[in-house]
Measured scan of single mutants.
Amino acid sequence: MGFKLLSKLLVYLTASIMAIASPLAFSVDSSGEYPTVSEIPVGEVRLYQIADGVWSHIATQSFDGAVYPSNGLIVRDGDELLLIDTAWGAKNTAALLAEIEKQIGLPVTRAVSTHFHDDRVGGVDVLRAAGVATYASPSTRRLAEVEGNEIPTHSLEGLSSSGDAVRFGPVELFYPGAAHSTDNLIVYVPSASVLYGGCAIYELSRTSAGNVADADLAEWPTSIERIQQHYPEAQFVIPGHGLPGGLDLLKHTTNVVKAHTNRSVVE
């Protein structure tokens, strides 16, 4: 069995187990497998329904001669939608809004960016022009300005110390501490036991640490421990890039980060 097929099978099995364990909360999309990078042309966006009122959005972007996937989250909030992270750029984010209108038909009224990198804030200006209120932590807003990236308009308070959590509509926002970046936030959907790890969490097929220019490698494993301790009931975990899975993604990420750190020390 090929690795790609095995990865998709694991996603399907995880979703099936969740649907059985929580039949009222989960209505997993039966329309197909989780979209992969090879299936999404740059400039297009796919939506994948995880649970009743919960979707991931998947886009792709060219970077350094390669094409990478990027995940975000959409959560229903009454007759409105909360968006977590842009679709990595203005063109993708405009396509995301169009796809949401086509498939869901509810307005996106608020959006949260989970850290300051372009795959999370690139497209904020498109959201703002569409009347979406954009939010991020003060740290993310400051770092985005320093980096020359787009800056969300509103500040999220109460997320300055490791372990801080605040309720934001249908989700809980959690600051686990520094990891992929010093400002990275985690998003949890309690009604569906869905954990969105953003770039602080890796997919299972990833074996290298990737972009760690703004990471705190020493603190990252401790931050992941905080996530595990705060959300032990999480059933569906979405990484910032690639295929979702279960809580095993947290341990896998820790292993990859520690291996990278150990290699760096040896070198």
Rank of each mutant, 00 (worst) to 15 (best):
Y175F: 07
G89N: 13
W88S: 01
Y196N: 01
H154D: 12
A192R: 10
P244V: 07
S193Y: 08
S205Y: 14
I20T: 06
D29K: 10
P152R: 01
I58S: 13
H260K: 06
L96C: 04
I17H: 14
I227Q: 04
H241I: 00
I227N: 04
H241Y: 04
F26L: 11
L6N: 05
E33H: 07
R128N: 15
L243Y: 06
Y202G: 04
L81A: 12
R263S: 09
S139W: 07
S208Y: 14
L156Y: 02
L143N: 13
R120H: 04
P41N: 07
I100M: 14
Y202V: 10
A200L: 10
L82K: 00
G177E: 01
H260E: 09
A209N: 09
G210V: 13
Y68C: 08
A15D: 14
G163S: 08
N262A: 08
T114P: 01
T182W: 15
G105C: 15
E33C: 10
G65K: 12
K251F: 05
I201D: 03
P138R: 09
S155W: 11
S56Y: 08
E233L: 13
H260I: 15
S137G: 10
V42M: 14
V124E: 04
V237I: 05
P190G: 06
L156C: 02
P35L: 07
I151L: 09
A136Y: 02
S56G: 09
W55V: 02
A192F: 05
F26P: 07
A165L: 14
A21V: 12
H252R: 03
H252D: 01
I201C: 03
E233I: 12
I50R: 02
F3A: 09
A111Q: 10
L143M: 12
T114D: 00
I227D: 02
G240S: 03
P170M: 11
L106T: 11
P41D: 10
H154N: 05
L83N: 01
N211F: 14
E233D: 11
P152D: 02
I100E: 02
L249G: 01
V37A: 07
V266R: 12
Y202E: 09
L127M: 06
W88E: 00
S56V: 13
S27M: 07
P23C: 06
I74S: 03
H117S: 00
S113N: 15
S31H: 05
G163L: 07
G158L: 11
Y231V: 05
S70M: 15
D248V: 09
L83R: 01
N184Q: 05
D214C: 04
K258C: 14
T153H: 08
P23A: 09
D248L: 10
D77H: 10
T36D: 10
P107V: 11
T93S: 11
Q61D: 06
L81V: 11
D77M: 09
Y231P: 00
P41L: 08
N211L: 10
G242I: 03
V54K: 04
P170H: 05
A218P: 11
S161H: 14
D118M: 06
A66L: 11
V108D: 02
S31E: 10
V37C: 10
P176C: 01
S22E: 12
T222S: 11
H154A: 13
P138G: 14
Y202F: 06
V112R: 03
S193P: 03
L250V: 13
P69D: 07
R128E: 10
D183E: 05
N184T: 01
L195H: 01
G72A: 00
I20P: 12
L83Q: 04
A98F: 08
L24W: 10
T182I: 11
A133Y: 15
F174H: 03
R46D: 15
I74N: 02
L173R: 01
L159H: 04
E33G: 08
A178H: 12
G163N: 11
L73I: 11
Y202P: 02
P69L: 11
T60F: 08
E80Q: 13
A178R: 09
E80A: 10
R142I: 15
R167H: 05
K102S: 13
G65Q: 11
W55T: 02
A25L: 08
A19R: 07
A179D: 03
Y34C: 09
V11K: 05
L247Y: 05
T253H: 01
V126T: 13
A51W: 09
A19W: 13
L97Y: 03
D77F: 10
V124R: 03
T254W: 07
K258W: 13
Q235V: 06
T36M: 08
A259D: 06
V237F: 05
A209D: 08
I17C: 05
G105P: 15
K8T: 11
V189C: 01
T261I: 05
S162Y: 15
A19T: 12
T254D: 08
E219D: 10
Y12C: 07
K102T: 14
F63K: 09
V237A: 04
P35I: 06
F168A: 02
G78V: 11
K258D: 08
F116E: 03
P221F: 13
A213R: 11
I151E: 05
T222K: 09
T109C: 05
I50D: 02
I20A: 12
K251H: 15
Q229K: 14
D118W: 07
V126H: 06
D85C: 00
N184G: 05
L204G: 11
S22W: 09
G123E: 03
T222R: 10
A200N: 00
V121D: 01
R110Y: 13
R128D: 07
T93D: 00
L10G: 08
